[in-house]
Amino acid sequence: MTAFKRLDGRKPEETRKMEAKVGVVPNADGSAMFSFGDTIAIAAVYGPKKMHPQHQQDPEKGTLRCNYSMLSFSVSERIRPGPSRRSTEISKITEWALEPILMIKKYPNMVIDVHINILQADASTRCAGINAAALALAHAGIPMKSLVSSVSIGKLDKQLVADVNKDEEDWEEGEGATDIPITLTPRGEITHIQLDGKITSQELKEAIELARKAGKEIYEVQKKALKESSNPEKK
């Protein structure tokens, strides 16, 4: 990597400081917090429980229902509370990112609700949300094939970087900023990918590789959080 300077002094492949903790919402069947620097997400799982209304029940498999939402004061300019087009889309994207790892066939006619709230936002909120949600599902004891780890790869001018923050997201020099949130299983299967910006396919392939590397680190942080929760001494 060349001497590319990130605004906060990180190396290109370096994520912000990550923290993860499970069991943050005692009422929930499973819950977790995940943060990338100043981006903080919490997720709570309720269920599996009987799906209501009844006509939405699926006799072949359970339903995963995610709800992503940002607190009104999580960003500088207040956002109106309640669902928006953006949050509706991210909720669905989150369902798609998580469903492949859940053994959801075990729960016909049931629903698993995952509520994700962004307490504080400094970009990459959907990724933090997905990381928290994966932890919360594991904490709830839902049978899963694996976890997923999510990170947003950025292309700032020509340089690929891991875990973009808000200042980087607004990068305007050169080719500007391209934002690529990616979610992967530990085996490197992509369960979610989005992109906004301008990039060649070759660069995109490199971005996916970078996500894979960053994903491994995130996975370690997630695993550690789960282990700590099952260790009664640390509770």
Binding site: W96, A97, E189, I190, R212
Partner: peptide, 21 residues
Amino acid sequence: NGLIFSLQKGNSKELTIEEMS
């Protein structure tokens, strides 16, 4: 001419990196 501006994966099924390529 080969540039990509936006991309979104839809539906809940995973893709391998090779498939994505």
